[in-house]
Design a protein around this nucleic acid. Structure first.
Lengths: 214, 214
DNA sequence: CCCTGTACCTACTCGCGAGTAAGACTACTG
DNA sequence: CAGTAGTCTTACTCGCGAGTAGGTACAGGG
């Protein structure tokens, strides 16, 4: 681990904390919460274990901090990518693009968020559920906004949003096993699935992004 | 644990194995693989630890066996519910109903399958990925069968299937937090989402099961 | 050149849990 | 009533990993 990077000495606390967080996300994403050991994290970070405890607290605190940091990064990436004041389908499209773009460039973050956090019973699930809830609310609001005509209850919008978020998560996982596909293609597939539906796709009715319209 | 059930003595091996498997699914689903201890499983099963090892082998073997058993149960439930020789949408509908029916009546199984197995790196992921792959293939075949017109590549059908399966998984998780909803309603929502798409739903175009079709 | 504080380390303790040794109890078979 | 085969237990070993005690280097101020 980090054999070549000569042990830089006496760095300020803020820098070390960043290094430790990066190492923790890496290790947690590879091994999961329980299987990851504080020894390995400190090793990857290039410091000794007591430093780790001194700066970031217990293992649980460290993990929760990781989740919070990565969740925030991702929500910001999505929020920054979405284009409000546009048609609902365009908003959804830009959100999907931002989401898959983030996942593609931050696999480790995604692993920590989606795979690890969701299975640990403790306060982590709450942390993760919080972010997930924000994502679902975002989508649910988008749906509700575009659904005056259809008789959709609040619960219905929320469950549909949950399904969509889940589809995105699952497709992101599938993408990890087929990394050759460009992010845009994967995003477009999900867009077509949830906007057009199989019923239309079977008939050859495809959704196109605005640039190709008219 | 199991305080009331008076320790039944000297039962035949097959019966004990069932008890142990049931206890293991219960504990694994509640605590996850790593956090679950063989002591607790043997306790819940009402036997001592050496019996556990004598009958079901190591912790990893036991877990893999649990996954295999529950996965098989679920796939059989779905296969038994789907109606071949029907229109694609009807096949999908019956499959979804069977899936949500199974999840509703086997929460613990679902937890073991979806939440726990997917995060452990070892041979479990393979076990789970195998079942998941079968489900995806099933859906992919259904799509391909109904998609002569659309220019869908094999990869595209598979990724769409992965997205659909993921949507189902996610919606099942959401359902665990909103258990009042009947299975049929939840299944119908997903059916509408993936078959009609938001585009149609927004316009009030709803998919109906065959019984309501003129 | 001491003094205080902060970065940093080696080298432990200690509990938990996977896996086992060695034997005790029961039942059936002759 | 041996013998033997299968059920079942108590009571361990032993390694791994979370968390800590107690100290070493280095930096700046007086």
């Amino acid at each position: 681990m980090q054999a070549d990077q000569r042990r830089a000495k006496r760095l300020p606390r803020a820098v070390r904390e960043r290094q430790i967080m990066d190492a923790a996300v890496d290790v947690f994403s590879r091994l999961g919460f329980h299987a990851a050991s504080m020894d390995e994290i400190s090793d990857v970070a290039g410091i000794s274990k007591p430093m780790l405890y001194a700066y970031l607290g217990s293992k649980e605190e460290l993990f929760a901090t990781c989740i919070r940091r990565e969740a925030t990064r991702m929500m910001e990436a999505i929020a920054g990518g979405v284009e409000p004041d546009q048609e609902p389908d365009v908003q959804l499209w830009s959100g999907l693009r931002a989401f898959f773009g983030f996942v593609g460039e931050n696999r480790a973050s995604w692993q920590v968020l989606h795979r690890q956090a969701s299975t640990q019973g403790g306060p982590f699930a709450a942390e993760l559920a919080d972010m997930r809830g924000r994502a679902v609310s975002l989508v649910a609001a988008l749906l509700a906004q575009s659904t005056q005509a259809a008789p959709a209850t609040e619960l219905e919008a929320e469950s549909l949003a949950a399904a969509l978020v889940g589809a995105g998560e699952s497709l992101a996982d599938w993408w990890l096993d087929h990394p050759d596909e460009p992010a845009g293609v994967v995003a477009a597939r999900l867009m077509n699935l949830v906007w057009m539906g199989f019923g239309d796709l079977v008939k050859g009715n495809i959704w196109h992004p605005p640039s190709r319209r008219g």
